[in-house]
Amino acid sequence: IDCDKTIMVTLKHDDKLHEGSECAFQCALLYTTVYGQRRIRVSTLSLSCTNMLSNLFRSADLDTQFACLLKQAANEIPSAPLAQVRDQATNVCINILYSYRKYCATVTSSSGQLILPEALKLLPLYTLALLKSTGLRSDGRIDDRSFWISNVSPLPTPSVIPLVFPRMIAIHDLDDKDESDDSIIPSHIPLSSEHITDEGIYLLENGEDCLIYVGNSAQPNILQQLFGVSSLEEISNQFVLQEFENPLSKKLNAVVNEIRRQRCSYLRFKLCKKGDASGMMFFSYMVEDKLSSGLSYVEYLVHIHRQIQSKMP
């Protein structure tokens, strides 16, 4: 156990909690320091109690809820059919949104509209990404799935969502970034092939791997600035990011260093090209597309909505 591990616990209580009162959660960890000293670290969290379900949804922590959903799925994979685990993940999402629709949505809300709580509006997207992840995709290899289970089980909460829903940015036009924007990393691009062009160069990172996808028609001058070569064929498959004496290369390195700082990971770089195995791996992360491993995002939202409607009286 270290600072990069997360332990998930399911609690059940029988006492009645009163509106406005506080409920405390406390855990104690007995451990040994690197110097052989035995210590106990006690952590306490106090939360306000409420009888209003709307307050619960308003204060929902999406990152933590999704981390629990992912870890529960990983725990079920060894003992249950994969299709059942996938259905359970979707059903959790459906039941959460159904409860919000039934108990919290306004009377004037249209029954033909999918109502999402503001704090959990990305839950369907992340759930779909989970279904298409290495651990739950139906066409995955057993070895890859086993590694995925061991990797995600202790994963810290901030690292969970990026692992299944990576961040993708365009790096061929970093020079066009709005100077008034103080952020080092530009706005991310939706994980859909619709937003990828043959002329573009893209960076996709999930906190562990950093994929650089180079389109077949990328401009030679951009390739020269970023990689020191004038054609895609000249880029070595053993890709190592270098910094060259030009603004575009310096901006790319600044972006990568900021990502490393945020993720606390140096990242494994992989070059991806269209038409080979590396390109297929890159496009497997396009979770909003319709893939062999599942529905498109729009289709999944329609499915979620229909299931909620079928539950409504």
Rank of each mutant, 00 (worst) to 15 (best):
H303P: 11
G112K: 10
V34G: 09
K132M: 01
S48Q: 14
L11I: 12
L291I: 06
Q262F: 08
I304M: 04
C27F: 15
K270P: 04
A277D: 15
N51K: 07
K250R: 13
K121G: 07
Q262I: 11
A105M: 03
T197K: 09
L211R: 00
Y202P: 02
L17Y: 02
L114M: 05
E233M: 07
Q84P: 06
V42W: 05
Q238I: 07
D14F: 13
Y98E: 04
L241T: 01
N95S: 10
M312I: 07
K273M: 08
L45R: 13
D144M: 09
M52H: 14
E258W: 06
V160S: 00
S217P: 08
T10A: 10
N151Y: 15
E118R: 14
I196G: 01
S231W: 03
N75A: 14
P158Y: 04
L56K: 07
R58V: 08
D15I: 12
Q113P: 04
Q113H: 12
A129F: 01
I184Q: 03
A105Q: 04
S48I: 13
L128H: 00
L241W: 00
N91F: 06
E19L: 05
T64I: 10
H303Y: 15
S138I: 11
R260E: 06
R58F: 09
N221T: 15
C68S: 12
A60C: 00
K121V: 10
S109Y: 09
S54T: 08
G200T: 03
Q65T: 11
L211G: 00
S249A: 05
C49D: 03
L56W: 06
S192F: 03
C272F: 01
L226W: 01
V214C: 03
I169C: 04
G207C: 01
R261T: 11
D198H: 14
L191M: 04
I304C: 05
Q88T: 14
I169Y: 03
I94D: 01
S296G: 06
D173Y: 08
L204Q: 01
E179F: 15
S292Q: 14
I201M: 04
I185E: 01
S59N: 13
E118K: 14
K16W: 10
E76T: 11
E234Y: 05
T33Q: 03
F244H: 06
T10I: 11
L226G: 00
P78G: 02
N216D: 15
R141C: 15
T32K: 13
N253K: 05
M8Q: 09
R58D: 11
L291E: 02
